[in-house]
Amino acid sequence: MHELSLTQSLVAIAEDHARRAGATVIRSITVEVGELSGAVPEALEFAFDVCSKGTLAEGAALILRRVPGHGRCGLCAAEAECGELTAVCPACGALAFELDAGRELRVMELEID
């Protein structure tokens, strides 16, 4: 489960930024999780409870913001949301669909005290 190492990074990034801001505790962590990122939100949540133990992030609310997949066709210029990793344009069928959203795995912000 690579969600475990992703979550370790998540906690490390959060602690690093919190420390630099002089925090004694992290209240919440907001993370963008793209629908096409390959990471399973439930697995991140599960791993977070384990990984945050004994850190500034222990007990913090983990707010996972889902980002839907989205792309644009390089041939017919159609734009569409897209729930799976694919290069097939849903409008014209060409292998020219370029995804421009949905791969995010990014810590966006913290709330600290």
Binding site: L6, S9, L10, I13, A14, H17, A18, A21, A23, R27, S28, V31, L105, R106, V107, M108, E109, L110, E111, I112, D113
Partner: peptide, 10 residues
């Protein structure tokens, strides 16, 4: 609580 912008990829 104070908000801190992070915007860092996992």
């Amino acid at each position: 609580p104070r908000a801190v912008r992070v915007e860092e990829d996992l």
